[in-house]
C-alpha cells in the first residue's frame, strides 16, 4: 500500500465528495417530495392520476439509472432540451428515487390498521384530524426504515453520474487510476470516502427508526 500516494491525492476526493453529496442531497430531497405525492395519489385512488402514478413508478424502477441519465444527458438535447450534467444527475436520481420512496411510504400508509381509523371515527375525529394525528404519524413510523434504506441506496447510485462526466468521487477515482496505475490505493480512497459520507446517514437513520418506532417503544 502506497500511503504517501494516498495522502497526496486525498484532496481530490474531498472536492469530489462535495459533488457527490450535492447531487445526492438534492436528488434525495426531490425523491422524497415525489414519493409523498405519489404515495398519497396511490392510496387515495384518484381517477386518471392514480394510474398515471402507477405507470411512472413502474417505468422508474424498472429502468436502470444509467439509461435514465443517458436519456436525460444525450437524448433530451435532440429534443431541444439541454441540461447541465449536474441538473441531469439530480433529475435522474429524483426520477429513480421517487418511485422507491413512493413505495416505501405507501407501505407505511397501508400498514396502519383499519381499526385505528375506526377508533378515531367513533371518537368523533374529522377525517383531517384522523390523518394528521393518527394515520400520518403511524405511517411515518413504518415508512422510516424503508426511506432510510432508499436514501443510502440513492447516495450509492449517484456513482453512476460519473458516466455523464460529472466529477464525483467515482469519476475522480477512475481518473486517478488512469493517470497513476495505483489502482489499489485509488479504490481504497474511494471506499473510505463513501464510508465517510454514508456511515453518518446510517447512524442518523437508526436513531430516527428508534425514535419513531411506536411498536417497540
Amino acid at each position: 500500500m502506497n500511503w504517501s500516494f494516498m495522502a497526496q491525492n486525498a484532496h481530490f476526493f474531498v472536492n469530489a465528495a462535495y459533488v457527490t453529496v450535492f447531487i445526492s442531497f438534492f436528488g434525495v430531497v426531490f425523491a422524497i417530495l415525489i414519493g409523498v405525492v405519489c404515495a398519497a395519489l396511490e392510496v387515495s385512488h384518484v381517477p386518471i392520476l392514480s394510474p398515471v402514478t402507477r405507470g411512472y413508478i413502474e417505468l422508474s424502477r424498472n429502468t436502470p439509472l444509467l439509461v435514465q441519465l443517458y436519456f436525460l444527458y444525450f437524448g433530451l438535447p435532440k429534443l431541444g432540451i439541454s441540461w447541465s450534467a449536474q441538473t441531469c444527475a439530480v433529475v435522474g436520481l429524483a426520477f429513480l428515487g421517487g418511485s422507491y420512496m413512493a413505495e416505501a411510504m405507501r407501505g407505511g400508509l397501508e400498514a396502519v390498521p383499519r381499526i385505528q381509523r375506526e377508533s378515531a371515527r367513533v371518537l368523533g375525529f374529522s377525517p383531517r384530524q384522523t390523518l394528521t394525528h393518527i394515520i400520518l404519524p403511524q405511517a411515518l413510523s413504518s415508512a422510516i426504515p424503508g426511506v432510510v434504506a432508499n436514501v443510502i441506496f440513492l447516495v450509492k447510485e449517484s456513482s453512476v453520474v460519473s458516466a455523464i462526466a460529472l466529477a464525483d468521487v467515482m469519476y475522480v477515482t477512475k481518473d486517478l487510476m488512469g493517470i497513476s496505475y495505483d489502482t489499489y490505493e485509488s479504490l481504497a480512497l474511494l471506499i473510505i470516502t463513501y464510508l465517510i459520507i454514508l456511515l453518518p446517514i446510517s447512524v442518523i437513520g437508526t436513531v430516527l427508526e428508534r425514535r419513531f418506532d411506536y411498536a417497540r417503544r
Binding site: 381499526i115 385505528q116 375506526e118 377508533s119 378515531a120 367513533v122 371518537l123 368523533g124 375525529f125 374529522s126 384530524q129 394525528h133 393518527i134 404519524p137 403511524q138 413510523s141 411506536y214 411498536a215
Partner: peptide
C-alpha cells in the same frame, strides 16, 4: 362510545394523550 375487541389505542400517543385527544380536538 365504543370499545373494540383488539387493542385500538393510538400507539403514537401516551396513555394520557390517548384519553385527552378526543375531548380536546373534538
Amino acid at each position: 362510545g365504543m370499545v373494540f375487541q383488539s387493542y385500538d389505542l393510538f400507539p403514537n400517543k401516551t396513555v394520557l394523550d390517548n384519553v385527552t385527544m378526543a375531548p380536546v380536538l373534538v
